[in-house]
Nucleic acid binder design. Structure first.
Lengths: 149, 149
DNA sequence: CAGTATCCCCCCTGATACTG
DNA sequence: CAGTATCAGGGGGGATACTG
């Protein structure tokens, strides 16, 4: 299940994050759960992924603490998949992907789904990077401080 | 090269974004370029990826407009890989991954590299989601408005 | 050094059938 | 419906050799 040779031991948080959710399906599954799909069949139908693959991904994400199973709310014997706090922490990753996609992957006039504040029905604001004291930053104003061995 | 059956035609920006950079290596390559690695060999050595795979990824990302090649600054005949504006737009995705990794994938006391504002050497602030009028939002206050057919 | 070309293997993936 | 088991194929991925 681990793809790149123990990337999980990297000291780069980006690499370590990708080791958990950087495969072909995980982020789409997590997106679906954010969007309110909690049943195996719902997710499977929505993504069109093979059942075996979906089961494996759900198991992996569960083992990694990203999601957990809960008794079905409809009283059936099956379980529902819900995000843990750790899993909900991925929301910003998905939002960032969404906003990048909206900005660069659609033609003018082409429509896409929209992330809105539920209460007001208004589009959420663009994420932005800030300094520790609240000034807006761009990528060229930052650098990665490597870890001393 | 396209994995999931024409996911690029999806009307979900998240899916479309993942269709471009959702494979095993692309985001790590882009991270490396952000971190100042611009030469084929540097990236190849740093990631430990097979040369053929790296070449294919670079080509793909170039065709997709995420990066482009420029003449080498050292006067050799080779090229350097630099991000386009579109590619630089992925910075927030990488920052979001980084911050999630930092928050959930390290033991207490375990060290990792750090994203800092270059001028002040201070850690950048945590990304946060805001409403269109500047209130802080959490994932449960939002929903995805599906596109009408 | 910067790639390209080739080979081969593994595993991911999808399809189907099966169980509870 | 919610998964598990099994099977076959296809391609991604690594290693190596080769070229400029």
């Amino acid at each position: 299940m681990v793809k790149r040779l123990s990337l999980g031991e990297e000291n780069c948080p980006v690499a370590r994050a990708l080791d958990v959710i950087g495969d072909w399906w995980s982020l789409l599954i997590i997106r679906d759960i954010f969007d309110g799909l909690h049943r195996f069949g719902e997710i499977q139908e929505n993504l069109g992924v093979a059942k075996g693959v979906l089961a494996a991904r759900l198991r992996n994400l569960s083992e990694r603490g990203v999601l957990e199973t809960a008794p079905a709310s409809d009283g059936t014997a099956y379980s529902e998949y819900v995000l843990t706090k750790k899993g909900r922490g991925l929301f910003l990753v998905i939002v960032a992907l969404r906003q990048w996609g909206e900005a660069y992957l659609y033609e003018r006039g082409e429509k896409h789904s929209l992330l809105v504040e539920t209460a007001t029905n208004r589009k959420v604001a663009a994420l932005q990077l800030m300094s520790s004291d609240g000034r807006e930053l761009t990528c060229d104003k930052t650098s990665v401080q490597k870890l001393a061995k």
